[in-house]
Nucleic acid binder design. Structure first.
Lengths: 141, 141
DNA sequence: CAGCCTCGCAACACATTGTGTTGCATGAGA
DNA sequence: TCTCATGCAACACAATGTGTTGCGAGGCTG
């Protein structure tokens, strides 16, 4: 997902789902599926017809990874645990309380981290890598 | 899993997989499957034959939730991301770097939290809940 | 207007994974 | 010897994510 967005920042004009799918090694329908959330959230625009495709609808500096995460529907972060909700068994309640606390705290840390990374920052990081890579290549030749 | 362990602390004698399965609403084979890791790690013992079953092999105060997590094979914590490892695309590398950092930090927080919760602490919490519950019941009657 | 391009959406096919289930062998006690 | 219990392997099943196809709607171009 982020991969797609960064590619779109590099390419200033509209990009079709087909091209993005080719970049990601998947197919266009999947791309549209995951981009739908971003479009509804107003971060992206999609245009039909010849010369259409996807364009950024906001400033990359104002959107954070957390925004993207929520636009995607805030999918579950953790792969484990999260048992049934207090099924009367007190043992279950104790376990849930301890784990839920730990999970909530870890999730808060993760989201805080995502919240202060903007798309523009990612793009800048990419630029730095590109520069380092080309410098390395020049040195090799 | 933790649910099972707490039940075993309450019951001082050996408990069969059948009984544990009944408590958890599953079946004995599944119980044995997940307990196998704990047995190999030395936290549990299992005995065959009549009167056999599962017993604790350690002091609940010395084993933490992190120990249990690792005895279970340290299953993946997060449900998302973790794309392919640097497939040459620099964009992918930038995205991975940013996300891996965030995930590592969140995982560290989670494990630190698990590391200072012992089984005995969970059992004590359960005791407190039991007490509160019975008090509430007395008040209601 | 006709033809092509692109997205939007729904339905289906498929692989993967976790979970439940069955069967049989092994060891321990009555 | 019989019963109880674990250990292990193999299979059945449901849920989920992903890829695929088909059709319709809208927009550009000649």
């Amino acid at each position: 997902m982020l991969h797609v967005l960064l590619h779109m920042i590099s390419a200033r004009e509209a990009v079709t789902s087909d091209r993005l799918a080719a970049m990601m090694g998947t197919n266009p329908v999947v791309v549209r599926r995951v981009m739908a959330g971003l479009r509804e959230a107003g971060y992206l625009r999609s245009e039909k017809g010849h010369g259409g495709g996807w364009t950024l609808a906001c400033d990359p500096a104002t959107i954070t990874l957390d925004d993207i995460y929520r636009a995607l529907g805030s999918p579950p972060v953790f792969a484990m645990g999260h048992r049934t909700e207090s099924p009367g068994c007190l043992v279950e309640q104790s376990v849930n309380a301890a784990l839920e606390d730990a999970f909530r705290e870890a999730e808060a840390v993760l989201l805080a981290r995502l919240r202060h990374v903007t798309l523009a920052a990612l793009a800048a990081d990419f630029g730095a890598r590109l520069k380092a890579c080309t410098a390395e290549r020049l040195q090799a030749s």
